[in-house]
Amino acid sequence: MIILITGASHTGKTLLAQKLLEKYHYPYLSIDHLKMGLIRSGQTDLTPYDDDKLTDYLWTIIKEMIKTAIENRQNLIVEGCYIPFNWKDSFDEEYLSQIKFFCLVMSEAYIDEHFSDIIGNENVIEKRLPDEDFTIQFVKQENEYYLKNCCQFGLDYILIDKSYEIEEYCQL
């Protein structure tokens, strides 16, 4: 089984991937690690700020890794924000039946009530550099963008609205 986890920044994608790894012993691929490896090695002239271009560039690699894992009957968790909303177009039905998709979305009410918690938990798995542009308004816009696109593309999403208990989302 392949598990795809996406969502806006700070929604807990990496934490969910880590919890799934611990529970099911499935390895996971951080798209951010792949991105930085390609950038730092000089394999691309893109920068960490070229989000749209990075999605197109990285997806050409990731979708083939997913196909290879499925063909070899291997489990894999792939997490990151560089999964396009039309990701299903990259696979035939034989592959799609082996892929489970999660998009984590925080509601505006949750963000309003828990913004300090969101900031306080930003380094739970990975160490982030401080980001002055990471404001409550930015978080709301990003989550609204993911919700809108999930609805537009008919994708399932997990709405984080009242509380955030990551273990609730670890059932496959």
Rank of each mutant, 00 (worst) to 15 (best):
L29W: 01
I31D: 05
D32R: 12
L34I: 13
K35W: 09
M36N: 12
M36D: 12
G37V: 01
G37I: 05
L38E: 10
I39N: 09
I39T: 07
R40T: 03
R40Y: 08
S41K: 01
G42W: 00
G42K: 05
G42Q: 02
T44Q: 10
D45I: 05
L46V: 06
L46I: 04
L46D: 02
P48Y: 05
D50P: 06
D51Q: 09
D52L: 10
L54C: 01
D56T: 12
Y57H: 14
L58C: 11
W59A: 11
W59E: 12
T60F: 01
K63M: 11
M65S: 04
M65L: 14
M65N: 10
I66G: 05
T68S: 14
I70F: 09
I70V: 15
R73L: 05
R73P: 00
N75C: 08
N75E: 10
L76M: 14
L76C: 11
I77H: 00
I77G: 01
V78D: 04
G80H: 03
Y82A: 06
I83K: 02
P84H: 11
F85V: 03
N86M: 09
W87C: 02
W87M: 11
K88G: 04
K88L: 13
D89I: 01
D89H: 10
S90L: 15
S90R: 13
F91I: 10
D92F: 07
E94Q: 15
Y95M: 14
Y95H: 09
Y95W: 10
